[in-house]
Simulated assay, not measured.
Amino acid sequence: MLSYDVVDVFTDRAFAGNPLAVVHGAEELSDGQLQAIASEFGLSETAFPLPPTRSGADYRLRIFTPSSELPFAGLPSLGTAWVLRTAGKLGTGRCVQETVKGLHEVVVREDGATLAGDRPVVGDYLDAAPLAGALGLFLSDVDPHAEAGVAGAGMDFTFLPVRDGAIGRARPQVGFADHVVGRGLVPVCFAGGEAHVRMFRAAGGEDAATGAAALALGVWLVDRGLLAPEGEHFVVVRQGQEVGRPSTVELHVTAVGGVATHVRVGGKVVPVAHGKIRVPG
């Protein structure tokens, strides 16, 4: 039997935010067994902390959705680091996490954690009209003050700027995935230093909170001139209200010369469950 913890991430109360399963002691399990456990939990992600294989790392993290492995993600990075701290395996403060994407700094605090993103990348600019149509929205719902397109800082996402009120009406349509570059399509309404977003996965489904999308959002906001071209910025990202799991994501962005040079994402973590799960045959 393996022990596991379930935590809610990007929230200060249980049964909100995005749930994550962290499974311990999986060093000897095969890829198929890890995938079977993630499929059994059925959460957006299940995390497996393992001994590091690279110099400088405090631990290695493998991340699985119910159907595949991810090279990098924000939610499991924050949640796992916090769980390891509560188990006495990490201290409060800076640590280094190893994933398929490489080494990333995590800062663990008593109520949550913060993750440094990968190298910021700005992808293609995209026509907003087909993206809006893919979500059942009208061209009049699109915010003309910024151009749609792709950005990432560990994982790529497609961003569509929309007017206030349009996000709640978004519904993926037939052929939706054909218009998405990266892991998902993110309609975003940005005003007054706060972003209201949703994240529709290209593979289907909607996230209650998406750390990797928030990291990419910081890159996109600077590139589109929605954040000042120089300095340190803090953005509150609201997500999950539409699926009954309100989430608050803390986004920190460093901009130099109109380019995002460093992005970090943070949030609170709340324990929900602890138990045992069988090892798949």
Rank of each mutant, 00 (worst) to 15 (best):
Y4D: 04
V22L: 03
V22Q: 06
G25C: 01
L34S: 02
Q35F: 06
A36S: 14
L43C: 06
T46E: 09
F48A: 02
P49I: 05
L50N: 09
P51M: 00
P51D: 00
F64V: 05
T65D: 10
S67P: 00
A73K: 07
G74I: 05
L78D: 07
V83I: 10
V83C: 15
A87K: 14
K89D: 14
T92S: 14
E98G: 03
V100L: 11
G102C: 04
V108N: 01
V108L: 07
A116E: 15
A116S: 15
G117N: 00
R119H: 04
G123Q: 03
D127A: 15
P130C: 00
P130T: 03
A134C: 10
L135P: 11
F138A: 14
L139D: 15
D141R: 05
D143A: 09
A148W: 08
G152K: 00
A153S: 15
F157D: 03
D164R: 12
D164K: 09
G168C: 08
A170M: 10
R171A: 13
F176M: 08
H179G: 06
V188D: 02
F190T: 06
A191G: 07
A195G: 07
M199I: 11
F200K: 04
A209K: 02
T210M: 07
G211Y: 08
G211I: 10
L226K: 12
E230K: 03
F234T: 13
V235A: 04
G240Q: 09
E250D: 14
H252E: 14
T254E: 14
A255E: 10
T261H: 05
V269P: 11
V270C: 01
H274G: 13
G275L: 11
G275I: 13
G275H: 07
V279E: 08
